[in-house]
Write a protein that binds this DNA or RNA. Structure first.
Lengths: 138, 138
DNA sequence: GCTTGATCTGGAGCGCGCTCCAAGTCCTAT
DNA sequence: ATAGGACTTGGAGCGCGCTCCAGATCAAGC
């Protein structure tokens, strides 16, 4: 059969270990993401080893942003499928991002409320102990 | 044997279903938290059914705050053990809360950075589509 | 008293997001 | 050419935080 997938068109062509180091993901996780369809099949050497191009890195960084803001794998799979289809799905992707962003903003507000309440509790304990907040007495 | 645990000293004495409704936790989760040692053994009826007092509710709400801000069950177990010992552990609890708060604040900052980056991406897609943000054309 | 729905316990099971493994192949340096 | 480390695959396993289940008991209304 034909080889199907070419090497990276041009550019760095990082090994999986190098991408792992740059992204903080483990090689296992990178392979898992690829199996899961989060990443389109990445370029390979003649011997079938992965070589990541700059565009793969950029997409991974975007995925990480989604993950860090709490998007589930299955939602990211959905997004990746839309992206694979092409520019025609930009409205759908935009809708997903807007919805995610709205949830994220609500999440941040909620965390801030909770942080404020924890601060009250902390201050309460501090006065109980008659202690200076954050400062040690000389 | 003696009955060991008295009924609630005074006050509402809610059933597990009522507490579930008020907290948003399921009855199963409430029992799980008790088994896990997050909640001290709650008052019981003569027939061994749980009846939650106001103080139990308040503690649960505090636990939920910790959970919602990302504290793990095992850290909450640690906190609950300290609390069970008594006022002597207030400094330790204060230290835990301060550390948690610090992580939480860092978390919020990170989310805000990511939200800003997502906003840029959203705006990029919007200009690609030549679309009004958030507004439908009449 | 009887019925019906709520609650009890201990333990098994589950979905998520990885993480690890074995057995084999590849790549690089010498 | 060869050694030794990096990489490959498919699949099993894991830790977390619940969630569900069976079989039994309890509580409340009629």
């Amino acid at each position: 059969m034909t080889d199907g997938h070419a090497l990276p068109r041009r550019g760095p062509a990082l090994t999986i270990a190098q991408v792992a180091e740059r992204t903080g993901l483990s090689p296992d996780t990178l392979r898992y993401y690829e199996r899961a369809g989060l990443i389109e099949r990445v370029g390979r050497t003649a011997g079938n080893q992965r070589r990541y191009a700059a565009a793969d890195l950029a997409w991974l960084e975007f995925l990480l942003r989604l993950r860090e803001t709490g998007m589930s794998i299955s939602d990211m799979q959905h997004y990746a499928r839309l992206r694979a289809i092409g520019a025609a799905t930009i409205p759908d992707r935009l809708a997903m991002l807007r919805e995610h962003q709205a949830g994220l903003n609500e999440r941040i507000r909620s965390l801030r409320r909770n942080a404020a309440a924890l601060d009250d509790k902390i201050k309460h304990y501090e006065t109980l102990l008659g202690q200076q907040p954050e400062t040690e007495q000389p």
